[in-house]
Design a protein around this nucleic acid. Sequence first.
RNA 1: GGAGGGUUGGCAGAGCGGUCGAAUGCGGCGGACUUGAAAUCCGUUGGCCCGCAAGGGCCCGGGGGUUCGAAUCCCUCACCCUCCGCCA
Length: 426
Amino acid sequence: MIDIQLLRSNLDGVAAQLARRGYHLDVAAFKALEDARKSIQTATEQLQSRRNALAKQVGQAKAKKDEAQAATLMRQGAELGERLKQMEAENAALQARLHEFVWQIPNIPHESVPLGSRPEDSVEQRRWGEPRSFDFQPKDHVDVGAGLDGLDFDTAAKLAGSRFVVMRGQVARLHRAIAQFMLDVHTSQHGYTEVYTPYMVSGACADGVTSLAKFRDDLFKVEGRDLYLIPTAEYSVTNLVRDEILPLERLPLRYACHSPCFRSEAGAAGKDTRGMIRNHQFDKVELVQIVHPAKSYEAHEQLTGHAEAILRKLELPYRVVTLCTGDIGFPSAKTYDIEVWLPSQKAYREISSCSNFEAFQARRMQARFRNEKGKAELVHTLNGSGLAVGRTLVAILENCQNADGSVTVPGALREYMSGQERIARA
RNA sequence: GGAGGGUUGGCAGAGCGGUCGAAUGCGGCGGACUUGAAAUCCGUUGGCCCGCAAGGGCCCGGGGGUUCGAAUCCCUCACCCUCCGCCA
């Protein structure tokens, strides 16, 4: 969430900055809420002060064995109690409303984020690699996978419905190899610590990284329990530092985590229904960084570079896009999307999203560090896919396919495939 | 599943219903001593909210209750630990 002090001190300024991302901040509502809060809070605290003073006097009277005096004071205290109870309830209700109001405000976009309301307004930063020109008609990953007896959507549908996949044989192994490879690169070359975390988190943790109220429908919930299947390892990994005050020297923390991700895709009916571009379950290697506030934009560039390194090693053409103000996610201050080339679609498709959340998530999670002055201060959090495993498999099947239906294994993955250079139908 | 114990400040750990936001130790910070460091000694050291300030309020796992007054009593939920049973 954004700093409520900032709202109090510069409400119109915040509203203007939020307007850049298409969010209308109800300034009048906030003012009304704040005014009411102020008067009720002050009144409540005055009553509390009097109650405390009275209670103290009762103690003193009793110590002096002045029972008559004590009885008088206790009667006064009892009278005061009734009013206090009402005030406290009113105060609590108002604080809750204010809290709710502030918690559903999205993050303020960083000044470097291009202004725009549609995906087309996002700005391409760079491209790497040349899309391959085929001397035959390339198939999409569904057909390549079927030809290899490796991807089976019909059977998956029998088990769990649409938007699932069954992988077999060499394709399943390739999928596993991709994840291993990514994890190894990030831990051995980019300074990340591998972590294994729960695939379910509490509602509070979900609310720590984004707005649960807003995104509840996108999550799978465990029936009858306050547990949600993670839609990305970000949910569990970022929360590793919730309610912590980290020593300065522990920063930065860099975590890499391979996990399955579960998404209900409630709002995506009819979109990307073919293949495994948008499934209810997919694997991803996630990168998370917990950093000093002064270093987060530097870290953001590095983290994006770490994700890009994977595509370079796999020799898959991609481009990097800075999402425009209207397209960044709820908690994000700035996001780079990395898009990989898919021959079947003749288009670049998202394979990674790298965001700097500044203190937005940290404030929700109460994730802090002890700064140079010894004071507790909120950390900055970042994450990025490094990369989505399923979509990487899709990209390899499509970009590395051969006319005979086989697929060439990218050089970087061969050590994970017993040196095998290509996958063909068994 | 059954029985019991526990959750207190950065950490460890005390705390008869009244002056406890909380002893003590460690750690941190400042200082003395030292060429420097260690050791020792002295001082200091939680978070949050309102307020220009003075000052006030809240926080002892979460929530509720009893009371003039709750870290201390009661209820409830969560988590942790120990033992028994069961299971992988």
